[in-house]
Design a binder for these strands. Structure first.
Lengths: 173, 173
DNA sequence: GGGAAACATTTTAGGCTTAAAGCAATTTGG
DNA sequence: CCAAATTGCTTTAAGCCTAAAATGTTTCCC
């Protein structure tokens, strides 16, 4: 409990500081740009290798990766949440992968709104083949990081994710 | 030049090690997924806020951010390299931003292949207004990180970027 | 039971993005 | 000097992606 009027003023100050005395957020901004650069760089590299080696796009690969972890299949909503993309996006992606024979899609017996998708035999075989190489590419891209670096990055990124989720929640609230 | 057959075999071994004795790259894979999750999360949040508050897309904002740092303008190639996107992408983006009055575009006097683009007065004013809020959003998204966390992340991401660039170079070579 | 709300998915309209091919201007090497 | 390579940009074709509206289905609750 604040003891004096001056204490109260100090508290107010600290809470509204960002508005009244615009702080220096340059460090966070630089961090965000660096994070984005790293991701874009690696993503572009992986995209190119997938295209050259297997003539497959990254979104297709990502979708198959989700399904590979779910032998009993997933609903489109599940996929959409996991991949953090819109529903409509998944609809189109699935459409093309069913067309090419990599996915199997059926309406749920118990809920006719729901579509359940699975990898076909072909889809699973092709994914496994691609995933094996993909894993090596990733290891190579991160090759200069020590195991300690990796652990530390994991920890800090987990903290970053939590912070961002909290902030996103604050906005939606 | 390898001197013996055994040297050759050793070279082969070291080059194909990952295939012959499959190493555990699960940690790197997890790290990559976490990196991607963080970026996607923050990027989506920023995209949504830009749309809601200013009815502007993220790529447009990014392009304007590049130009704001270059009062004398940039060529399309420069922009394309900085933003790490394809040339054709920039062409379309610039087209729309010229159309909306945010960018000024002129052919270089000295090299008629080159297009130089600049922010217009309107473009600069709007960008500055957006950037001020954007900076606060970013600070808020990273709010739970201590200054030490930020420094450490900067360091590790710099190392990651260097590692990835080296790996990308190896492939192109 | 029946209407309202919630849910899963698709559709729509518009924009973003890429790789590859094409065009024009410039630079380079013989 | 001039042909060949390079450079800067645009075009093309295809696919990715989003937000918002639309459709059909199920659940909730009175």
């Amino acid at each position: 409990m604040p003891a004096t009027v001056s204490d109260c003023i100090n508290m107010l100050d600290s809470e509204t500081k960002a508005v009244e005395t615009p702080e220096d957020h340059a460090e966070e901004l630089r961090l965000w740009l660096r994070l984005l650069t790293c991701t874009t760089l690696i993503e572009g590299e992986v995209r190119g290798r997938l295209r050259q080696r297997f003539d497959v796009t990254l979104p297709r690969f990502d979708l198959m990766a989700q399904l590979d972890k779910a032998p009993d299949g997933m609903t489109l909503s599940d996929v959409s949440k996991r991949m953090m993309v819109s529903n409509g996006n998944v609809t189109g992606l699935v459409e093309r992968l069913v067309e090419s024979g990599h996915l199997d899609r059926r309406t749920s017996e118990t809920d006719r709104r729901v579509q359940v998708i699975r990898l076909t035999k072909l889809g699973r075989a092709e994914f496994r083949r691609m995933a094996a190489e993909h894993e090596i590419w990733i290891a190579d891209l991160f090759a200069d990081l020590t195991p300690k670096d990796v652990r530390e990055l994991m920890r800090l990124l987990a903290k970053t994710k939590a912070s961002a989720q909290k902030s996103a929640g604050r906005r939606r609230a």
